[in-house]
Design a protein around this nucleic acid. Sequence first.
DNA 1: TTCCTTGCAAACGATTTGCATTGGA
DNA 2: TCCAATGCAAATCGTTTGCAAGGAA
Lengths: 144, 144
Amino acid sequence: MSVLDSQVATRLAEQDIRYTRARRAVVAALQDIDGPRTAAEIHESLRGDVPLSSLYRTLSVLDQSGVLVPHTGAKGLVRYELAEWITGHHHHLVCLKCGTIEDTDVPPSFESRMEKMVEKIGTSTGFNAVDHSLEIHGVCLACS
Amino acid sequence: MSVLDSQVATRLAEQDIRYTRARRAVVAALQDIDGPRTAAEIHESLRGDVPLSSLYRTLSVLDQSGVLVPHTGAKGLVRYELAEWITGHHHHLVCLKCGTIEDTDVPPSFESRMEKMVEKIGTSTGFNAVDHSLEIHGVCLACS
DNA sequence: TTCCTTGCAAACGATTTGCATTGGA
DNA sequence: TCCAATGCAAATCGTTTGCAAGGAA
């Protein structure tokens, strides 16, 4: 059991949620990938080991328990990735052609300024900010 | 015909696309709103004047002609808003509870720094950046 | 008049759910 | 053991499309 696996196991145990075969498989699959993926993509990378209907339930459980985060970045498809307490904070490159989303980082100095700004926007508008993500839209290497 | 209307009319005329009743209605509906809305929401605010299937076709035409921009921000629903050449550049407050997206601005000094950064990320990763949007996630006033 | 656009109904694709069975702590 | 998780098939929901009728240039 990898470090990541035991972190996730702990997180699920705290909530009395079982860490089953399907759930392990999904976490493992997302571990090797640096960006959100759709249910269909995960299903394929699992070579059909987990039927789609179970996969959707698995994604939903892992989302609600804070292990995954959903993104609905492009083409109206929901894409999941490991939560930031696992991957670390990052931002997204969204391809306008194929809809793929990849992770990217920004310089720490910019990041801290962005955080302050987000906080300020919250207090001045009544919007209770929790999180933020800079979405950069364009065309990825594979599509250009 | 409002200023906005004639701008849109011109844009469509350049592409030999008719500015019909349904298209005018959608543009007018989005004009009063400061954030992306789903087809269902637009349909409702039009009080069913435009049937859903026609509405989807209308949204698609206005998207392809550069009048609207789609966002797939939350709950896996596609939301449309007027393009930035009409509304001006802005960012988004995304409510994690109800999924609504509202527009917001950031200070110009921050904005220009963000633009430079986005450009740099593009050149250093092979990703051809076109556009960006800071998505601030949290809980909106109505939901808290 | 001539296409483009509309409306209706049927088709589609992603996601969800009911229910009987299996499996994990 | 005992309840949660799974697998299958059917249902649901947002969105798309074929086709005949109506409308803008």
